[in-house]
Amino acid sequence: MNGSKDPTLHQRILSEIEGRIVSGEWPPGFRIPFEVDLAAQYDCSRMTVNKVLTQLAKAGLIERRKKSGSFVTQPQSQSAVLEIHDIKAEVQSLNLPYAYSVIKNASRKTKADDKLDLPVGGLVKEVVCVHFAGTRPFCLEERLINLGSVPEAIDADFGAIAPGPWLLKQVPWSKAEHKIYAFAAGAEEAAALDIPRSAACLVIERRTWSSAGPVTHVRLTYPGDRHALVARFSPAS
């Protein structure tokens, strides 16, 4: 058997297990083969396997449970509540590949129930897209963009860059409002996020303004069992 000091074998085992996790072949909750089985599979010592699993646990990819084994972790998003965060960076911080798919991208007239405080009949761009972490849906984004404040959006197809970072490059915002609440997934949310209907979701609604007026309203819906919001703050002076 190979010794535990073989860096090439260590890296091979690490890369192969990490690849199975990141690709989604081993989804969250999947139990990793036991150390003795991995040692037999790779013809190496249990010490080598133990070091690999310890490294994966430190990276947050697996959770080691005493007497039960090692399991692929559930992703936990950590978003500063009062910041305009980048979903791509959020996914990549979890050591998962990021992708997104545009479901809807169309201009239309404003409606009475739109949340941009615009007169009915004005023009907005409606964009809906799903962000992915690995092969799993991570977040459903439903966004309205005020074409009066951001006329460039009328021709944007968002094929190369998602609406959020695109807007940050186009318009300097001066004020933002967040609303955070729990929500039971309806048929559309369940289908987009590949979760059961009525599953608990975490929703962040955000509105931003610039000197030209309202910029955007976005509703971000996350599967509630895999996400948390974390904010750091200091006492008021």
Results as ranks from 00 to 15, higher is better:
A39Y: 02
L9F: 08
Q41H: 14
S237G: 12
E83W: 04
G159A: 09
K125G: 02
G121I: 07
E35P: 00
K88P: 04
F71A: 06
V22H: 03
R20M: 10
G69F: 06
E188N: 13
T208Y: 01
V215L: 07
K66V: 10
E142Y: 05
R136L: 10
L193W: 07
C139W: 00
V52S: 02
G186C: 05
D113K: 10
G164D: 11
A187K: 15
L82K: 07
P27Q: 08
P223M: 01
H227G: 09
K51N: 15
V171W: 04
L123V: 06
E189Q: 15
G121A: 10
A187G: 07
R197A: 12
D194M: 12
K88N: 08
L193K: 05
D155H: 02
E90C: 11
A99D: 11
P7I: 07
N2H: 15
D157P: 03
L14F: 15
I103K: 12
V81T: 15
Q76F: 13
D157T: 13
L147K: 02
F233N: 10
A190C: 09
T216M: 08
L14Q: 08
H217K: 02
F233H: 13
A156T: 06
W26G: 00
V52F: 00
S15F: 05
S211A: 15
R197W: 05
V127N: 04
G224N: 13
V36D: 15
G134F: 05
L53E: 00
H178Y: 11
V130M: 03
L53K: 04
P7V: 08
A228T: 07
L168D: 07
A162D: 10
S79Y: 02
V218F: 07
S198Q: 14
E188P: 08
S174W: 00
L140W: 03
D113M: 09
T216R: 01
A40L: 14
Q76D: 11
F138W: 15
V203C: 08
A59E: 10
G60W: 04
S15A: 14
P214N: 12
G29A: 11
Q74R: 13
K175S: 08
F158K: 11
R219K: 11
S149P: 14
S68N: 12
G3E: 13
R207L: 06
Q76I: 13
L96R: 04
T48S: 03
S149L: 12
S70W: 08
L202Y: 01
A89H: 07
A190M: 09
R219C: 01
P163V: 14
G224Q: 12
R20I: 03
Q92K: 06
L147E: 02
P119E: 04
F71G: 06
V203E: 07
P28E: 13
T221A: 13
P214Q: 11
V150Q: 04
I84P: 04
F71C: 09
S79K: 00
G24L: 06
C201Q: 13
E205S: 11
V52P: 02
F71E: 03
V203D: 06
S77W: 12
H217V: 00
N105D: 11
A231Q: 11
S68L: 15
C139H: 01
F34Y: 15
R143E: 06
P151K: 02
L202M: 04
